[in-house]
Simulated scan of single mutants.
Amino acid sequence: MAGVLDSVDSRTQLAGTNRLELLLFRLQGKQRYGINVFKVQEVIRCPKLSRMPKSNHRIVGVAHLRNRTIPIIDLGLAISNEPIVDKENSFVIVTEYNRFIQGFMVAGVDRITNMGWNEILPPPKGSGASSYLTAVTHVDNEMIEIIDVERVFADIMGVNEEIEVDVLDGASEFTDEKPKHILVVDDSSVARNQIKRVLQKVGIECTMANDGQEGYEALEKMLEDGVPLSEKIALVISDIEMPRMDGYTLTTKIRKDPRMQDLYVMLHTSLSGVFNNSMVEKVGANHFVPKFKPNELAHSVINVVNNKDPSDGMENISDA
């Protein structure tokens, strides 16, 4: 696996083309799983681990890597599966989500495969609300399961959804110039519900879509009566990684559609913030907010509805 993850440049060329690269791996058994290579910093043999007292049982220890200490999560346990048995011969996928670095312990790493987001499909119906799947795809005639990492983190780390009073005060400035309604596009049910609860606290309603294709179709439906979108929704909040159509492609389609091109688009994702800041400009989005920072999300949305720069006053906002 050494060398496969060395070059970021080749992978960034995929962004905005509705394509991605998946790192395939196994837990216990033959089933293969996938994770977007953009979120992977490196893949290593499991290093020596130190136990953390009173930590969640799914965090099997911490590792000291490159002058930093990161938690190591047994991904099998995290998705209510069997734990990794042979820890000494296991691998750790070091990832960055939501500005945090962590490692996922897996039994084995397979390879990286390049595919289109249109080949990434919603999980089969009947998988149940308790499923940790956010999507599936097929490689070599085998179904690959893609895990809802937002749910894993919510279960293990918990999620703070509290909003500071100073942030909420901005909602008192709302006027009738913009509708208090937002289209939220995200394939994770956990993420959608988190966003919905934050928006409810600032007095904003929302329409939900499960992926970019569904989001675009929702916008088209809103236009059927001939009323401009500006009179129906204030903005779109979109994830980037989604089945069928990713957030970059959704933004590009919005900008190319004369009926939608003036719509405000805010990208909301756990992918690297440094990379996304450049992609915001490339695909024509207006702003980027990292997951999941309730104060930052609420502040940015309130500012947009109030016709302000979403970053105004951000230096005074803190999300622990």
Rank of each mutant, 00 (worst) to 15 (best):
G3F: 07
S7D: 08
D9P: 14
D9N: 13
S10C: 09
L14F: 03
L14K: 09
A15H: 06
T17M: 07
N18Y: 00
L22T: 06
L24W: 08
F25R: 05
G34T: 04
F38G: 04
Q41C: 07
E42T: 10
R45F: 11
L49C: 11
M52A: 08
M52K: 06
H57S: 14
V62G: 07
T69V: 15
T69H: 09
T69S: 13
I70T: 11
G76S: 08
L77Q: 13
A78I: 06
E82T: 08
I84A: 02
I84F: 01
I84H: 06
K87Q: 14
K87Y: 02
V92I: 13
Q102W: 04
V106T: 04
A107T: 14
T113S: 07
N114L: 13
N114H: 15
E119H: 04
E119R: 08
L121V: 02
L121F: 00
P122Q: 06
P123Y: 04
P124G: 03
G126R: 11
G128Y: 02
S131R: 04
T134L: 11
T134H: 09
T137Y: 00
H138I: 08
H138W: 05
N141P: 13
N141R: 13
E142N: 11
M143C: 14
M143I: 14
V149N: 09
F153M: 13
G158Q: 11
N160Y: 01
E164G: 06
D166M: 07
D166W: 03
V167T: 14
G170H: 08
A171M: 08
S172L: 09
F174Q: 11
D176A: 13
D176R: 13
E177L: 12
P179N: 10
P179E: 05
H181Y: 03
I182R: 07
L183D: 01
V185S: 05
D186F: 00
V190Q: 07
A191K: 13
N193W: 02
I195K: 04
R197Q: 13
V198H: 03
L199G: 05
K201E: 10
V202D: 12
V202H: 09
G203N: 06
I204P: 11
I204F: 00
E205H: 12
A209G: 10
A209T: 12
Y216R: 04
A218N: 07
M222A: 06
E224H: 11
E224Q: 15
G226T: 10
P228R: 03
K232Y: 00
V236K: 00
E241A: 01
M242C: 05
M245R: 08
G247K: 01
Y248H: 15
T249A: 09
L250I: 06
T251K: 06
T251E: 10
P258Y: 00
R259Y: 01
R259F: 05
M260H: 02
Q261D: 15
Q261R: 15
Q261S: 15
D262Y: 07
D262K: 14
M266N: 02
H268R: 06
T269A: 12
L271G: 05
S278H: 12
S278I: 10
S278A: 09
V280W: 01
V280N: 01
V283M: 07
G284T: 10
A285S: 12
H287T: 08
V289I: 09
P290T: 06
F292I: 11
K293Q: 15
P294R: 01
P294F: 00
L297Q: 05
V301L: 01
N303H: 06
V305E: 11
D309P: 14
D309C: 10
P310G: 06
D312T: 15
E315L: 01
A320Q: 12
